[in-house]
Nucleic acid binder design. Structure first.
Lengths: 196, 196
DNA sequence: TACCCGTTCGAGCGTTCGCTCGAAAATAAA
DNA sequence: TTTATTTTCGAGCGAACGCTCGAACGGGTA
């Protein structure tokens, strides 16, 4: 299947170009050049620039979600689930930096159906995380504002990474995950040590 | 001083338009319209669109940094400093949502001198925060990777807010600050309670 | 050979972009 | 009033944008 291969090339090139230049700054000509084809040729594989952004976002998040489901399948203890969730997230982010930068950064650019479908899959991801947090804190109300804030704080920690992570300087996914998991569970100043 | 007033109008309009449409999507014509003047008239107050973005970012961060210094002046206990830092951050973010969204989201668009000056002031802000964290965790090495990761995790929590905060639905600055401070210090599952 | 059909492209359409010009209008100073 | 200075703008330039068209390419089949 020549088509499928070429399509993947196109989406990957788009992810790379969008990540480097930002969605609006990146032109369709840049993407075409990166994919090694003409502008007209590029449009054989997509209907619009927006659809290209959608493809990048949707594909990435879809695979991330699937990877997460698979990783969590064999883990039942909530705190271990959290560690697995965070690790999976970092591993995926660090091996798909460009795509995930686009996903994180260009959210809100899409509209209509594209926006709805990406928002839907993001929500699934969020809810799966919230479930884990809920189990850990022992909250019975899934609508609790506190639960929401706490979960979104966790999301902040793990999503913000793309703005500062530098390979070589910073720790790998495992190291980061351990650090963040520990921080989220017990904080920087566990009470147990302050009383002694 | 007619000029100064008009200039502030221009910067505020730019912040608003950039926040709503995103920097690249927003056109200079949008900003001019929002400021109630013609495109040519707008250029009497700035040299380029980039300079406009710089003004928005630099002004905002400059005032935030000054506000922070003032707030921290009378606080010496590290944990209390942390609470004040987070609260100040949220209060400023929530009263300058548009500007801060631009600052957070359009970082990396600027280049050269503009980029350098914004990066410099951001670094000052980061280092002030790192000092506080360092005092809390009792770390002696300011270059510690762990300290870096921990501080940036905190930044993630407080900077990510602009992507999800909804006035009315979510708590106010004080409530958020308490929640995040507690989370950062002791985690969601303090050890003191798990030991029995 | 001829035909087909999935794939590719050069050329270019219409629009919007950031930005500038010279002149006019508003304001202040004489 | 006249003069000088600050502020405003309509008109439009050149470039880049997203996107499209009809034609051509090239490997497989008959």
């Amino acid at each position: 299947m020549r088509y499928e291969e070429r399509f993947e090339t196109v989406v990957k090139s788009a992810a790379s170009v969008f990540a480097k230049r930002g969605y609006h700054r990146a032109s369709i000509r840049d993407v075409a050049k990166a994919a090694g084809m003409s502008v007209a040729g590029l449009y054989y594989y997509c209907r619009s620039k927006d659809e290209l952004l959608f493809s990048v976002c949707y594909h990435s998040f879809d695979i991330l979600l699937q990877t997460l489901q698979r990783s969590l399948k064999s883990v039942s203890h909530p705190e271990e689930q959290l560690r697995v969730f965070i690790l999976t997230h970092f591993e995926y982010f660090l091996t798909h930096v460009e795509a995930m930068k686009v996903v994180s950064h260009e959210a809100g650019v899409l509209t209509g159906e594209f926006d709805a479908r990406v928002a839907e899959i993001k929500r699934k991801y969020y809810l799966r995380c919230q479930q884990i947090v809920q189990a850990i804190v022992g909250e019975s109300d899934s609508e609790s504002p506190r639960l929401r804030t706490t979960t979104l704080a966790l999301f902040g920690m793990i999503n913000w990474v793309y703005t500062w992570y530098r390979p070589g300087r910073d720790d790998d996914a495992k190291g980061l995950a351990d650090c963040i998991t520990e921080l989220f569970l017990h904080g920087v100043k566990p009470r147990a040590e302050t009383g002694g």
